[in-house]
Design a protein around this nucleic acid. Structure first.
Lengths: 235, 235
DNA sequence: ACCTGCCTTAGGCATATGACTAATTGGTGA
DNA sequence: TCACCAATTAGTCATATGCCTAAGGCAGGT
């Protein structure tokens, strides 16, 4: 429960109350879901009078629009930051996987907003924008990984890889939202092993000065299964 | 809009009116989402009087419980039927992928029910049951495919494969629900090519009487990338 | 001190909602 | 035909909801 609004009316106050309401909406998305949020429940959570929803946003609908806009901006910025890291790809993957367990409120907000958007055509483009940004943010990292690990991209384009990685992540997040964990540890461990071995081999190849093309063929079979892991590792 | 209820009171009438209401609820889940369904909207859609919701189900909550139960039973039966087919794995995958575009109402219902369950702990176990059944239904087919195509399972257990396939499917379905198609065709085409080549090679190996172990090593590199495809093909 | 503009409050209003109920209807069996 | 029981109707009720408004409060500027 937020504290009452301070009574000094500085120029920042408008943003303060607006942000309070938007923050409260996010907390309630996590706690009770979009369908259960009312103006009174929201105002109570924000520690302001119920009339302020109308004053600042005009309607609940507009408030949700702004919740979605603010959230998507934050999410996109965060994904760009994560994938801009110079760390090798397995590290990026591990970082993203850590979010699976540590970032449940964030994920809940995102998927509650999506569920709301399923029935609101005017919101779909905004949702699509985030997924596009996510894909774009990781594309560079995936391209580098594919090149570094000498994985063939002839049959699997970068777009296919990226799509695979994104969809796997989405599926994992959603299952956890529903309390499902079956098979997750097995999958994540397998991907991790595979990525680690790809990275070790790439480092070895660098030291030996070997061309990757050559390095692939001897362990081709092993790489095959790992190549799968790479697919998974794309997140 | 359903037609009015017939006026002959046979012993089947109770089931008739109940089913009408449950059918109407499913249609509305597709059309307006769970959050917008009211007793009056539902009764109108079912062509019955609004008081019958209380008479037959006692509450909207109980009605949604029964919608979920009925739907999950149907979904599980259908998945079992699909994966029980003796067709080779690529055909099963293609059958499942055809559902991506042709079965949008079905998918919408399922995900609206899931979104509802995110905020209803008492519904989570039911949702989890469906995902478990889905995984179980496809496990046999995946195991057969792994064996037939000579793919290593040492690093990727069957559980990992199954989880990968399920999560990819979930991600694809959800993106389409939000109107997102980017990268889907590329991914599905790549998986299809890879599965087709796996199947051709398996058939050739059968005719030639070669052991799969031997057959893998020459094309090891190609198999690697296809192994990825197989990962994708697991759906 | 006064004025102005913005913020906030304390309700109020019209409508919607889930749940409910008494009366009526209709089918079946004796 | 009559009696009985289940199904249905036609509202009703208490409460909730989104939206709104007039009045008051407060800070900053003159």
């Amino acid at each position: 429960m937020a504290s009452p609004v301070p009574h000094d009316r500085t120029p920042e106050l408008r943003r303060e109350t607006e942000q309070r309401l938007l923050d409260a909406a996010e907390r309630l998305l996590v706690e009770i879901g979009y369908a259960a949020i009312t103006t009174r429940r929201l105002a109570e959570e924000a520690g302001v009078n119920q009339g302020l929803v109308h004053y600042y946003f005009g309607s609940m609908e507009e408030l949700f629009f702004q919740v979605l806009d603010r959230f998507t901006r934050q999410l996109i910025a965060r994904q760009r930051e994560m994938y801009a890291s110079p760390a090798p790809y397995p590290e990026k993957w591990r970082e993203a996987m850590r979010y699976l367990d540590q970032d449940r409120p964030y994920q809940k907000i995102w998927w509650e907003l999506q569920a709301m958007a399923w029935n609101r055509p005017e919101l779909r483009s905004r949702v699509a924008r985030v997924v596009d940004a996510w894909s774009d943010a990781m594309r560079g990292a995936v391209e580098q990984a594919v090149a570094r690990y000498g994985l063939r991209t002839g049959e699997f384009s970068t777009d296919a890889w990226v799509t695979l990685i994104v969809t796997v992540n989405e599926g994992l997040i959603l299952e956890r939202l529903a309390g499902i964990r079956r098979g997750h540890d097995e999958l994540l461990a397998a991907i991790d092993r595979w990525l680690a071995s790809l990275e070790r081999r790439a480092a070895r190849d660098e030291r030996a000065g070997k061309s990757r093309g050559r390095a692939k063929r001897p362990g081709a079979r092993r790489r095959a299964s790992k190549g799968k892991g790479k697919t998974d590792a794309g997140a």
